[in-house]
Design a protein around this nucleic acid. Structure first.
Lengths: 163, 163
DNA sequence: TATTGTTATACTCTATAACTATA
DNA sequence: TATAGTTATAGAGTATAACAATA
């Protein structure tokens, strides 16, 4: 399979073709299963909050990879739907403490289970070796695409706190 | 590397984490290089039109993976910016024939070159073997995630014109 | 003054439904 | 009637800039 000499440019071209495709596919799966009407960013936000009770808006935004205004809006919609609680921090009243509500927890667990199952179903068509390849590739991409400036400097050895 | 036994579910979980990250990264690279202000779908539309002069709206929409209304708007904005020409088909006046204008061609080639270079730069940090793994994984994902219904049926033998 | 959020604007993307015009 | 596109509507994501509250 792989093995051949693929330049970074060739790989880049392929990624730019495939990643948006996978993205849309995941979105479509979520919508078609009417996952409580959760979008991907909302979904990822809930997932993060499940593991980081009381996180601040900035922390969530950084992890999900969006700006503060975007995350503020996302949280706003989740709070409105009673999936997330948002309270002002006692220690630093500029911050908010975000947590999953009980319905929020139930929702995220069901949605995650469902969506993962759909994606897994698609992956089940791959061979064991292909799946291992995908897994390894995702880890590599995660390391390469996480953080990191658009270019230039990057002392870049800098550890990538793995969330 | 890979080699270990990863279940489809584990791989799915990782994909759901990494793919959105890569996606945002590409968007960010494009924006930070002020790629003529092209969004990813617009970009992909131009790329497709470069190889498919005179394609119809439906054809482009199918390839890019969006609905007709979305593509209609995307084309609208590209026509407004003089990057795409849209003329009614002579043979079937319900259809439109879409093509790149000269500025459109110049734009897409520069944008593609630039963006690929940025992505390639990130990939350059990977080992040769990792890159080969990524390449193979992308091909596998392309096959698994292209077309294919959310589940079930799929008479779908229908060939996938490989772009 | 610096930091944390929020609000305001303005686009783009997406989806559904209703509509036009062709066929 | 069926198909190709368009328009209308509505919601979500993103980005920038301006702003409030707190530190």
């Amino acid at each position: 399979m792989a093995g051949l000499a693929h330049s970074p440019l060739e790989a880049a071209a392929l990624i730019m073709d495939v990643v948006p495709l996978v993205m849309r596919r995941m979105r479509k799966e979520m919508r078609s299963r009417r996952m409580s009407g959760l979008s991907l960013p909302q979904f990822r936000t809930l997932i993060f909050l499940r593991r980081h009770e009381g996180a601040s808006l900035s922390q969530v935004a950084a992890h999900v990879g969006v700006g503060l205004p975007s995350m503020s809006k996302i949280i706003e919609s989740l709070v409105r739907r009673d999936l997330v609680t948002r309270v002002t921090s006692a220690s630093d009243r500029r911050c908010v403490n975000l947590s999953l509500s009980n319905p929020g927890l139930a929702t995220v667990e069901e949605a995650r289970r469902e969506t993962e199952a759909r994606v897994a179903e698609l992956l089940a068509e791959l061979s064991h070796q292909q799946r291992a390849e995908v897994y390894g590739a995702m880890q590599a991409l995660q390391a390469a695409f996480d953080g990191a400036e658009p270019l230039s400097k990057t002392p870049r050895g800098a550890a990538h706190a793995n969330h």
